[in-house]
Design a protein around this nucleic acid. Structure first.
Lengths: 345, 345
DNA sequence: AGATTTCTGATTTACGTACATCAGAAATTC
DNA sequence: GAATTTCTGATGTACGTAAATCAGAAATCT
């Protein structure tokens, strides 16, 4: 049977109260006594029963999630994952508030962060926009002792505790290598469509993609990046134009959201089999397009993993505990039509 | 505040004992009373506090893991994950015993299953070999009410409760599509090396690979499969022979273990840049080979996920609970040099 | 109606930890 | 050596559930 506080007390020859004082480092224990207890703890290999401790504490963690509004499926999926976490909040002892802000609107985001601050939560998770006022708002939260985790898109200049998202430079590189190899033995230029260069994740993906393409397909011509603001209709319009204007177009990399627009543009032009298309995020639309062959590869970050990781980190930081970096690293998933997970994404 | 059993008792106008009887469906409650209680439970939205329940029960789950011995890194990694689970067993209320059996030895595996049965555990996880005596041994466990989960390699004809592993047909297909596309615009034959056709996962991968190659690269010539028994030395010998004998060799698919042999064969022949090599399982060796370019792609199943999933399922089955299929599905991971996770695998 | 069986209530103990209170012992200060 | 301060022990309650016991109520059978 695993040791309990009682065993420690017996072993160390002290009372339960003293053990408790040492374990929760409360004052009122002499150095020698503390040592005795700590030795007993290590020799017995005691580990605190977290479940029992939480039960006794009945602590709850008020958390705020700030997500962009918008028509794209990935962000709606992310919101759904936050809702799912809300359902679990009884079990996980969290109390989650969700705030929505207009997409790509730095002022609105800064205002939402300020509002979150007035709620005095234990932690805040935010899909960041890389702008000075946002950095300032995040730093203010941290000064108030509120833990902050950036979600999906990072905010490097700020004092945020953690970034719960993928390495987007690596994601871009992966897309670049795939594109380069899939197009090997084929001529033609490659188009790139982003959401907006204002968000860090898109900038990073572009950087990685360009670098990897330069390595794996040195001569390949890349068209100038266009911005579709993660809006399906806008993306479709932009890409339809590019497809029409560039007869030699061999590949498209869509590094933001708005996959529906990409798919529609390809299929309406009848070029879905011909043009190699690589996009991000597994959604019902992109899944169907991958299965049918309109898309050739899909990179994905698991929104559920990201939300759960953010919650774990926020709780840990609120308790002043360290996080295990390796465990919180979000992996870049690659999907081809052959390894699509069975369940609807 | 979330409702407790006391709230239900008050709401339903019954005693705590009756609520307890309904919740744990113990006998001794009239139909009408049971309904009253159940209505109170749903209207209050009560969810059992699992932590408190486990604390009160202080139940433990004795589990047995049966793994093949052998020199390959993947299986050693799997064993390490089981050890890691052992460390957590205090927290997870499990008591894990690990049994090792010689690789590819059906009689030894059947004997180990029989030995596991005498230990009367709550559940058994086993890396299966597809053979009648193994099926019989698994069925005997199930007849004794012991939950059985196959790990990594499945046993379709048996009465096992669950398979904790990837869809290996899909994995093979994925490798086939990648190979076909990476070799597009290039002549040459493709070699396939397996561990042994005795285990289901290898058979399935071969099937998927052949099918996908036939689709994505119709004319491509596949050499007959060779069996390296997951042994690095044997794999190296076989492949060195193939590389020497087939001057036109353009690709190698290694669907079992023994990556060190594959890597050595390619590098000693100086063909690492030239031949497209796709293998399975992320290990320190394969990671280095992917980074250096000797390997072109790597498919991976996360051993940690598989072990943890197996434990969750075994615990649930031991309690007669259903498992959430979607949550227990193990994904096929694809790694290129660009999306290698940072931590040593 | 009486005996029996089946249901229900009341109460208690336990799980392992947190936390508070109070009294007494030990160390420190003057 | 007395007064103070600091430490330690003893004890109890709480968290939410499980599980057992015993007594009494209700339903069923004879």
């Amino acid at each position: 049977m695993r040791p309990t506080v009682h065993d420690i007390a017996a072993k160390a020859g002290v009372s339960l109260a003293t053990v408790d004082r040492v374990l929760n480092n409360r004052p009122g224990v002499r150095g020698v006594t503390r040592d005795k207890v700590e030795r007993a703890i290590t020799t017995l290999g005691y580990v605190r029963d977290v479940a029992a401790a939480n039960l006794a504490k009945s602590r709850i963690y008020p958390l705020v999630f700030i997500l962009p509004e918008g028509d794209n499926t990935f962000m709606r999926g992310l919101a759904a994952e936050v809702e799912a976490a809300k359902v679990r909040s009884a079990i996980e002892r969290t109390a989650i508030t969700m705030l929505s802000v207009p997409a790509f609107d730095r002022a609105a985001l800064a205002a939402a962060l300020e509002k979150a601050r007035t709620l005095a939560p234990a932690g805040v998770a935010v899909v960041a926009i890389d702008a000075p006022e946002v950095v300032a708002a995040v730093d203010r939260l941290r000064e108030d002792g509120i833990a902050v985790v950036t979600l999906v898109s990072d905010l490097p200049g700020s004092s945020r505790d953690h970034f719960a998202g993928v390495d987007n430079i690596a994601a871009g590189r992966t897309a670049g290598t795939l594109m380069g190899r899939f197009l090997s033995g084929r001529e033609g230029s490659v188009a790139i469509v982003a959401g907006a260069m204002l968000v860090r994740d898109h900038r990073d993906r572009l950087e990685g993609f360009s670098a990897a393409m330069a390595e794996s397909a040195p001569g390949r011509r890349l068209l100038p990046v266009v911005e579709g603001h993660d809006d399906p209709a806008e993306v479709e319009k932009l890409l339809s134009g590019l497809v029409a204007d560039h007869a030699d177009l061999a590949g498209i990399y869509s590094l933001g959201a708005g996959n529906r627009g990409l798919i529609a543009a390809l299929e309406k032009a009848g070029r879905q089999a011909d043009i190699c298309a690589i996009a991000h995020e597994l959604t019902p639309h992109s899944r169907a397009a991958l299965a049918s062959g309109t898309l050739d590869a899909l990179l994905n970050q698991d929104a559920g993993h990201e939300v759960r990781s953010a919650i774990r980190v926020l709780k840990a930081r609120a308790d002043g505990l360290a996080v295990i970096g390796a465990q919180e690293r979000i992996r870049i998933e690659i999907f081809l039509r052959d390894n699509l997970p069975v369940e609807p994404a």
